[in-house]
Simulated scan of single mutants.
Amino acid sequence: MTCPYLSYRQSDGDHAFDTERAYCEVVDEFVSPMRADVCNDRHEFHHENDCEFYDEAESD
């Protein structure tokens, strides 16, 4: 399961990108591919355990 706060966008409103980029709705910004690995539970990561942004959003 991927993080429910992760989406992929092809623009930032002002600029269009060649490929979609990972966007975190908790911090309201694009995130690095390495951060997206955590969001997508890749490489033995799990967003519920390894992401401080997810913890923050769920505790609110």
Rank of each mutant, 00 (worst) to 15 (best):
S32T: 15
V31S: 05
E52N: 07
A57V: 04
F45D: 12
G13Q: 02
D50A: 06
T2Y: 00
G13Y: 01
E52V: 11
R42C: 09
D12V: 03
F30I: 11
C39G: 05
S11Q: 08
Y23I: 07
F53C: 10
S59Y: 08
Y5E: 07
H43L: 12
C51G: 04
E56I: 11
L6N: 06
P4K: 09
N40Q: 15
D14S: 12
V31E: 05
F30T: 11
C51T: 01
H46A: 10
E20S: 12
A36G: 08
A22T: 02
D18Q: 14
E58Q: 13
H43P: 00
C24M: 05
V27A: 10
H46M: 06
L6Q: 06
F17T: 07
E20R: 12
F53R: 14
T2W: 07
Y5K: 08
A57H: 02
N49S: 10
M1A: 12
D55W: 09
E20I: 08
T19N: 11
S7E: 14
D12G: 04
R9M: 09
H47W: 10
F53H: 13
V26M: 06
E56T: 13
D12Q: 04
F30R: 09
M1R: 12
R42Y: 11
P33K: 13
T2V: 14
C51A: 00
A16C: 10
S32H: 09
D55C: 09
D14F: 09
E58A: 09
S59C: 09
D60S: 12
D50Y: 02
D55E: 08
F17S: 03
A22L: 01
V31C: 09
N49Q: 11
E25G: 14
L6F: 05
D14W: 01
T2G: 05
R42I: 13
E58N: 13
R21H: 08
R35C: 14
D55H: 14
P33V: 15
Q10H: 11
V27G: 02
M1F: 04
E52W: 01
S59P: 03
D12P: 00
A16I: 15
E20T: 14
M1T: 15
D12N: 08
S32E: 10
Y23N: 01
S11H: 10
Y5R: 09
R21E: 04
F53W: 15
S7Y: 00
S59W: 01
E48Y: 00
C3S: 05
S59D: 13
D37N: 15
C39S: 01
S11P: 01
T2R: 15
P33D: 15
E52P: 06
S59G: 07
D28F: 05
E52F: 03
C51E: 02
T2F: 04
H43F: 12
V38E: 05
F53I: 02
L6R: 03
D60Q: 15
V31I: 15
Y23T: 05
D55P: 05
D28H: 12
M1W: 01
S11K: 09
D37P: 03
D14L: 08
